[in-house]
Computed example of a mutant assay.
Amino acid sequence: MRRIFMNATALAATLLLPAGPANAHPHVWITMRSDVVFNDKAEVAGIAVEWTFDDGYTQMALEGLDTNGDGVYSQSELEPLTQENLKSLKDYNYFVVPRVNGKIVAITDPTEYGQIYSNGKLELHFTVPLAAPADPRKAEFLYKIYDPEFFIAMDYIQEDPVGVVGDLPKGCHLEVKPVVSDQQLDQTRQMLSSKGADWKPPEDEDFGGMFAQPALVMCSK
């Protein structure tokens, strides 16, 4: 396992496969926030994400990147890591799953991406455009951000977890559903323990999505 956290994810998926999904647990932790990006027609045009990595991954990822030895990780020094991360994330749709009326909608490659190391924390940010804008006044729009194999735990920050870039349509507001309760987790674990290694969740959901907090744009009709 080197600097690319997605390599670790692929490795974990291989290791966890014989034991089944009930034994999966995270090995990397990310705290995050996100913004819903609106265009000038008050349609959802994309999702902007900000991830802060845990200390263990940060130290592994930064190994050998301070090429001039000055103790500062410049944008140029972090650029190869950013490119490697995004290239690896592409196969997983960048961990961003938007839905319109319950159906997953397509996204395109990230824009406005970058990575910084500050105050002992490594942070990655990028914006994932929707392939086609969605109007939340006409159809329910929600999204989840998560690792489908649950190797990486992704939790929203407590304050200001979700925001807006652009103008939120009149009569609409943002809502982040609560973290899954311990009781719900126990029920899910019990259900998973009875399933085989080849079991998959229904309704085009996946394993990691069962534990992810949905963020919604709620509009009055």
Rank of each mutant, 00 (worst) to 15 (best):
L174M: 13
D66L: 03
L174D: 10
M32P: 03
E77S: 04
F150D: 05
V164F: 12
N23I: 01
P18K: 12
W199R: 09
L65H: 02
I152L: 07
V105Y: 01
G209I: 01
Q75E: 12
A215I: 00
D155N: 15
G114K: 09
A106G: 09
M154K: 12
R33A: 04
A212Q: 10
K144S: 08
F38Y: 06
P98S: 09
E159G: 02
L124P: 02
L86I: 09
K177S: 12
A106W: 00
Q213W: 07
A212C: 11
A48K: 07
T111E: 10
L192G: 08
Y113E: 11
G209K: 00
V72H: 07
M218D: 10
I30V: 14
Y92T: 00
V179T: 14
T111F: 04
V217P: 02
Y94W: 09
G166C: 08
M210T: 10
S220A: 15
V180G: 05
A45G: 13
F207N: 05
T58F: 00
K195L: 10
R33Q: 07
S181E: 09
R189H: 09
Q158H: 08
I4W: 01
H27V: 01
Q213R: 15
K170W: 05
Q190R: 14
N85G: 01
A134Y: 09
T127E: 14
R137T: 14
N68E: 08
V96W: 05
D155H: 14
A10N: 00
Q187R: 15
S76Q: 13
E123A: 14
F211L: 11
F126N: 05
S181V: 03
Q75D: 10
A131D: 13
T58W: 04
R3V: 04
Q187A: 15
T67V: 11
N68T: 09
A197V: 09
I30K: 00
K41P: 06
